[in-house]
Write a protein that binds this DNA or RNA. Structure first.
Lengths: 223, 223
DNA sequence: ACGCCAGTCAACACCCTGTCGAGTCGAATC
DNA sequence: GATTCGACTCGACAGGGTGTTGACTGGCGT
């Protein structure tokens, strides 16, 4: 796994150099403590001391493993986005054979991944406003997904299944943004939100109408 | 205007009782300082001391006017949402006469209002994660807008202009959520974002296709 | 037997928040 | 014109969180 000490960027000096192994358990203990505590109270109310004590070490020792509290969350986020990438992976291959099913699969898999780590996702959404590292990582990940969707839309237009219209990139951004915000509201449960069991179908409907102008996109004549 | 001392909720005792006027300038000075500083650095990096000194008072005196730093932002947000409400106001009346123009007007007016106060909007989005008051106020406002859009969609379905489909409320939530997130990205300028001059048209396109399945909704036969 | 280094923590310096109590001052009131 | 009252002000404190320093430990290679 990627080392956690990424936040300051300038100095990867701090922390355990590869070769030894004693400290690994402490690192995972911190991570586990963070994920557990995130289920109980918001990130802002968890102190470094809480994390350290939860992992059986003192506060200064925490800094041996992570440069700051946010870096823990960043590592957690990294895991989740990797899992989401893996889950999404091949959802859009052979799109032409059954577009509706493929798009639904994409959305459903993201939903499952995020829903399975909602505490982490929610916490990241919260600190994204104040932490540049989290913001950057999330922007990177989103950019990948936007590009994948953009390419898929262009593919559908090329085979004549989807009409021309908005630039594919803008459409991809808008749809991905919608998903992000709708999931946030659904998982956080504050403000107007779509019920969790409906959210995939609601999002799917908007995606299909925005891309194809119909909820039953045509399959490819061949195949 | 509404007094700012709303955060604790239990005790409106604190602060200047109506009748005198000396303190009003201080209050507006704090607000003005906050909005000015927000244009320079994020809310989290502005201390109460900064606000107080900017308004020409000491830190303890700040607490005479506002119960906490967040309350200042809350007051600022209140202004912006009121302005947005006023701007949006009658955009959806006579929808049937020219649906595309009316929807566009709604979106464009919100865009103009938020864009005119982007520093405040951005700051609120950031603290929403950590501040329950801001979260509640935003949820309330959003709920009003969702209801208005929901009613408009149902109206369009009733007159046969829009096909049935998703529950109108879910659709309204999804579309409003999309706007919120897309605007945030556009104004913040981090991560994948739609260019500011295109954003109204991009959002409009998704709204129209999601509601009508066409970008040129039919006008009412009468009128 | 010795040095090195990952790992550990008590203690410190700092910053920010929120509160308390002692004030100042102008405008009614007597 | 003295007195009272309440709006308004701030110095000083207590508390809690962060990040750093410097000293200490113990195993492992030489």
């Amino acid at each position: 796994m990627t080392p956690a000490r990424t936040s300051t960027g300038t100095a990867p000096t701090r922390g355990r150099r590869p070769g030894r192994s004693t400290g690994d358990d402490r690192e995972v203990a911190i991570l586990a403590t963070a994920e557990r505590l995130l289920g109980q109270r918001p990130f802002g109310e968890i102190s470094i001391d809480d994390l350290a004590r939860g992992a059986g070490i003192s506060r200064p020792t925490f800094y041996f493993y992570f440069p700051a509290k946010d870096a823990v969350l960043l590592t957690l986020l990294d895991r989740v986005t990797e899992e989401a990438d893996a889950a999404a992976g091949d959802a859009l291959v052979r799109l032409a054979e059954d577009p509706r099913a493929r798009w639904r699969e994409l959305i459903a898999r993201f939903h499952a991944t995020f829903g399975g780590h909602r505490d982490v996702v929610l916490a990241c959404a919260q600190v994204r406003g104040t932490n540049a590292e989290v913001r950057r990582l999330w922007a990177e990940v989103l950019e990948r997904w936007v590009r994948a969707v953009e390419a898929a839309i262009e593919g559908e237009r090329a085979r004549g299944a989807a009409p021309d219209g908005l630039p594919a990139r803008d459409l991809a951004i808008a749809l991905n943004s919608m998903n992000e915000r709708v999931w946030y509201a659904t998982f956080a449960g504050d403000g107007p939100a779509v019920a969790e069991r409906d959210v995939v179908d609601v999002l799917l409907d908007v995606w299909l109408t925005a891309i194809y102008r119909t909820t039953t996109p045509p399959v490819s004549p061949s195949a």
